[in-house]
Design a binder for these strands. Structure first.
Lengths: 164, 164
DNA sequence: TAGATACTTGACAAAAGAGTCATGTTTAGG
DNA sequence: CCTAAACATGACTCTTTTGTCAAGTATCTA
């Protein structure tokens, strides 16, 4: 379970745009410099974000990249889906089939229930958090996110004994 | 953000053991057959789980693999950490450094606050869920997990306007 | 209409992850 | 002590992910 490079760096590029002049946007070089990435790589990331409908570009001298919507309207969920996706439970079941054409547990899978609970919670968080929430200094952002965020994903307390 | 093959398949192997005779355990072949995986791959996964201290093996004819602890005592968190880990925020910062030796945002990173909130929630869930919770049929498991699990990871409601 | 700046794209190379294989070690049973 | 069953391990291959490169197209300025 890990965050991919595309998700991390793509989000960072987008956050640069969210903090830039709304009408001028930023050039690839500016973003690359601001993130410590190569321009070539930034281009690739921006292409993904463009395909995902989150940004557009203006060509030519004075060109650059701009957000399609305001930072308040771009959720982390949308960003992650454009950059790498968090697979749905269905996709997880289709992916982990072992040697077979479909997963051996397709009819009755206990792990599926666990992944579903977890990914639902992750999506719920990502879809409620917006680029604008991540602007303004780490301390402020942390406080905003931590209010009411924990405890989370608690279990039903009477179900510890296992068996079945 | 995705679940790795090692996590998925490793957990499945472990769940086989959790459902097996506690004293006899299972052979590699039995697990491989039960999961639709190749014996060679199952061996590799079991090696990881062994290194993580979750299982041990008995060699020779009549040998096999057994859990070190009862399913009630093995959390999904421990399983995931043995198989692939969910990186800590610190590890995320150390990994995504771009072209530089340390991340350009190391002193003040808004994304870090977001990942930290999210991974804390994931760990909280994984550490409260045990192998024994995933035994006994999907419907039962789903009901147990869904009680009190949602809504989760909510944001502080007054923080939508961005800026700062 | 040249020249500079900047976006666009497909193909490629390097690294990491997934999965296999060959070979070796241990043990039960004849 | 030989054989078969079962675990043990390092090296290897295949695939996916990361990141780079080269060769384009569009636009502004002069």
């Amino acid at each position: 379970m890990k965050i991919t490079a595309q998700e991390e760096y793509g989000l960072r590029c987008l956050l640069q745009l969210a903090q830039a002049n709304e009408e001028k946007g930023l050039t690839v070089k500016e973003i690359a410099l601001g993130e410590g990435l190569s321009p070539a790589y930034v281009e690739k990331l921006l292409r993904l974000l463009g395909k995902g409908g989150l940004i557009h570009s203006v060509r030519g001298v004075k060109g650059g990249y701009l957000l399609n919507k305001s930072p308040q309207e771009i959720s982390l969920g949308a960003v992650v889906r454009a950059l790498g996706k968090i697979p749905t439970t269905r996709e997880i079941c289709d992916r982990f089939t072992g040697n077979r054409t479909s997963c051996i547990h397709i009819d009755n899978c206990c792990i599926r229930a666990a992944w579903e609970t977890m990914t639902a919670a992750i999506h719920s968080f990502l879809d409620k958090t917006f680029l604008s929430d991540l602007v303004g200094g780490e301390t402020k952002v942390r406080q905003a996110l931590n209010h009411q965020t924990l405890p989370v994903l608690t279990r039903f307390p009477g179900n510890r004994g296992g068996g079945g």
